Amino acid sequence: MTMALRTKLFARLLKATETGIEDVEDYPAHRAKRAKLQRSAVGRWIFGTATKAAVAEEIEIDDLRALVHRPRSGVSPLPCVVNFHGGGWVQGNPEQSQWLASRVAARNRCVVVSPTYRLGPENPFPAAVHDARSVLDWVVEHADELGVSPDRIAVMGDSAGGNLAAVTALDARDGGPELRAQVLIYPGVEMYDRWPSEDEHAEAPVLSSANMRAFTRLYLGESFGTTDHRASPIRATSHAGLPKTFILTAEIDPLKDNGSHYRDALVEAGVPVRFAEYPGALHGFVSLPGAVPVAQRALDDICDFLRETL
């Protein structure tokens, strides 16, 4: 387990300042504080900034805000990627994903729609699931307005967003629209089972086992204990018929085994799967390009996969 020097420094700083998510008393204030950090000079270095090779606009999808990244040139209709941000279903925003989303848009000449969704604990499961599905439906219904092709759509997400992308792909398989691909970045696919990587990296920076379990309880609320696959997509009755999938995992992450177990479930069901584990990477690394240099390699791999599938 070898981390880059800047990653080690970031991890030490984070360990010295992080707070358990269950210790938060005012979640809106907590989210506002995180957003302010993102906008600071240090935050822009850690989270990265959008590339100037893409343009961004903010739109409203029903009652949800979304950032739309598109290449500066390209002939419509373009492919589309619906991207769900991470944050344990309790925090996070589309801005934290703009380094990745804008570069995917520019390099793949596609439109990337990064929506908000209702967050727990104020809006527990399955509110976020419903929002994710409604965004996908809205994109298809407004394809002409967005300048996208409704038959060249992929879903993508990291962490909690990877969970929502996986759930949305299952839902779309059963009721349309047909997706071309799904990109699942260190996704959480199982709410309860404890796999070896969680013990191995129980005190990892960014995401500890304790915070991981707290996020689950806060998100599920009164539904804690449910075996609904919309909470734990690995529990779906069948994974057959899902689109081509790329699963990315981080070496130093309690959620690492979630990704490899989901890979195994999809491969067993006959789904074409690309899989990669990134050495020296922490949970959340694709949203932390300033602190984790291997994020650039992950970006290259994601763009390569989407180029093949879209």
Rank of each mutant, 00 (worst) to 15 (best):
S134G: 06
G175E: 14
A160M: 01
L146Q: 05
D253G: 03
A128R: 01
G188Q: 11
E203S: 07
R12G: 15
R213W: 08
A29D: 12
A50K: 08
D171S: 14
A169V: 09
L218N: 01
D63F: 05
Q38R: 13
H239C: 08
A154W: 00
P279M: 11
A35T: 07
P289N: 04
D26C: 03
N93G: 13
E22D: 15
A250Q: 04
Y117D: 12
T216R: 12
Q182P: 10
A106G: 09
R118G: 02
A204M: 05
S197H: 00
E251P: 04
T49N: 03
S40M: 09
D264V: 02
E95N: 07
V139Q: 06
K33H: 13
P254R: 01
N108C: 15
V139T: 04
V90M: 01
I59V: 15
E141W: 09
A276Y: 08
M191G: 05
N211W: 06
E251A: 08
L146E: 09
L306Q: 09
N163S: 04
T249K: 00
E122S: 12
A41E: 15
R263P: 08
G87A: 07
M156H: 00
T249P: 02
C303V: 11
G270P: 05
D131E: 13
H229L: 13
P293F: 11
M1D: 14
Q38T: 10
N93F: 15
F275P: 08
E178K: 12
Y117G: 06
A66Q: 02
R173M: 05
H229S: 15
V135R: 00
P77G: 10
V292N: 06
D174H: 06
R133S: 10
R107D: 11
N83L: 14
A35F: 09
P187N: 07
W45D: 12
L78K: 03
A181T: 07
